[in-house]
């Protein structure tokens, strides 16, 4: 069962189409990275998923239930952090969580537990307004996970965190995922998403241009292989005949485009069969950032 399912979700403001036929399929217990440029429709999607924008078409299903019909019940199972963290400035860190405890009735230990999880226990008596930006972000995450939700919807959760904070939060998300939580997150830090996401959705101009597993996305593009050989000219000729696009030949080095692991194995085999000595091989996979830019460019013609 999908944790989040949308069926041709569309949204307009006036005559302007913000989202067009979005069919999100976020698998249960996965970590789904939602990517898109500024203004692509990410935040609108997230607000719709949380019921902060009205979807009259009954196109959103969370944990198998229609959001339109089971709004409050769904909110009990979903934690969220949208754009900037929300918290009550006049309350302390502890009081902000106590406020949620009154609603969710999780008990006193849960507050301490969550404060430990986000490493805010030393700041619990501080007014939320007096926290640093990174600490505020941690408080936002603490408020999102307080009620032990099955699904976390996080919009830019790593904003304002220092490198150590980013690593800690990444580990926290992994830990929550291992406990069986589904995490839907958008982030501009693509390298972080690449490290953590199991599934990726890419939106551009209000339309989904890719949705699938991270491996499916990374497998869509070729990788560059740099080979240092005893005879670069012969190697280049051989590989060209074998159908590999040669990108560059330079001294004893040949740079080739390789599609997948089978092609890579075939490349090595043909060099060895022709008794061309291989001194070194480096494989440069394209990272998520390059793939993202390529996909956006091709979507825009």
């Amino acid at each position: 069962m999908e944790s989040i399912l949308t069926k041709q979700l569309s949204f307009k403001i006036g005559s302007k189409i913000i989202l067009d036929d979005i069919n999100l399929q976020v698998p249960e217990k996965g970590i789904y990275g939602y990517l898109g440029r500024n203004g692509a429709g990410k935040s609108t999607t997230i607000k719709l998923l949380l019921g902060l924008l009205q979807d009259d078409t009954d196109a959103i299903f969370i944990q198998g239930e229609s959001l339109r019909d089971h709004r409050t019940g769904i909110h009990a199972k979903v934690g969220n952090l949208i754009e900037a963290p929300c918290y009550y400035t006049k309350l302390t860190v502890f009081e902000n969580l106590k406020y949620l405890d009154i609603i969710h009735k999780k008990g006193g230990n849960r507050i301490e537990e969550v404060l430990e999880m986000v490493d805010l226990h030393r700041e619990k008596k501080k007014k939320a307004s007096a926290l640093s930006m990174g600490m505020k972000q941690r408080l936002g995450i603490a408020m999102a996970i307080f009620h032990d939700p099955q699904l976390l919807i996080l919009d830019e959760p790593l904003n304002g965190l220092d490198p150590q904070g980013i690593v800690e939060m990444r580990n926290l998300f992994r830990q929550l995922n291992e406990q069986g939580k589904t995490i839907f997150l958008s982030s501009h830090i693509l390298s972080e998403l690449e490290k953590i996401a199991t599934h990726i959705g890419i939106i551009e101009g209000g339309k989904m241009i890719f949705q699938g597993t991270k491996n499916e996305l990374l497998g869509q593009v070729d990788q560059e292989v740099v080979i240092r050989t005893s005879d670069a000219g012969a190697a280049a000729l051989l590989l060209q005949h074998a159908g590999f696009p040669i990108l560059k030949t330079d001294g004893d080095t040949v740079v080739v485009n390789v599609g997948d692991d089978q092609q890579f194995a075939a490349l090595i085999k043909s060099l060895v069969e022709q008794q061309i000595a291989i001194y070194g091989i480096e494989s440069h996979s394209k990272d998520l950032e390059q793939i993202f830019i390529n996909l956006i460019d091709s979507a825009n013609g």
């Binding site: 019921g51 979903v78 918290y87 969710h104 408020m143």
Partner: peptide, 18 residues
């Protein structure tokens, strides 16, 4: 105003209370 600050309506309308 407590809800206007920080756009806290986002908290208010995503808690499981109608």
């Amino acid at each position: 105003d407590v809800e206007y600050k920080n756009n806290n309506y986002k908290i208010l309308f995503t808690i499981p209370i109608s």
